[in-house]
Amino acid sequence: MNIFRLAGDMTHLASVLVLLLKIHTIKSCAGVSLKTQELYAIVFATRYLDIFTSFYSIYNTLMKLIFLGSSFSIVWYMRYHKTVRRTYDREQDTFRHWFLVLPCLLLALLIHEKFTFLEVLWTFSLYLEAVAILPQLVLLQRTRNIDNLTGQYVFLLGGYRGFYILNWIYRYLTEPHFVHWITWIAGLVQTLLYADFFYYYFQSWKNNKKLQLPA
């Protein structure tokens, strides 16, 4: 474990807790894309299948349980909670996210490190995570102004992946044979997707005005 990875995990944890807190306290999910949340639930479900077969540390297992629990709770709130589900803007959140799942699955069947069931699903989860934010970014563009909790959620999510890139550089420099192109490229693509959001987020923060994404 290194400081970059710990910072990344904590930022990731903060992003899901910020979102869960928002939805739980104000009983609203306005501005949140259910599609992105569903994709994230699939990402964690396919990534953490090894939770039963291999144990690394209490920390590792605990965090997996938290991520699984929080992502499925958010989906549950947005789909079934009587108050929250009414605040979900279904008309705007129309990204056909299933069009993201299939190509990621095909790609994982083609490019992976080992052709085993767990490995292919794990690789699928990496590819899917890289694009999972797209429905949320599209929704933010459509709804124009961003309420600051949703903005913080996307910002923290981008920051977590940014810290992970620093973690991979650190591990590459300090651990011999630590080379994982698939993880690195998927993580880099994901972080780049956030780049323009970060640009507008900082612009709004610097000029101290509401965050407006260009149409």
Binding site: D50, S54, M63
Partner: peptide
């Protein structure tokens, strides 16, 4: 347990 270090990350 297969502690291949690729999977120690979240």
């Amino acid at each position: 347990n297969n502690n291949d270090l690729t999977k120690d990350e979240l």
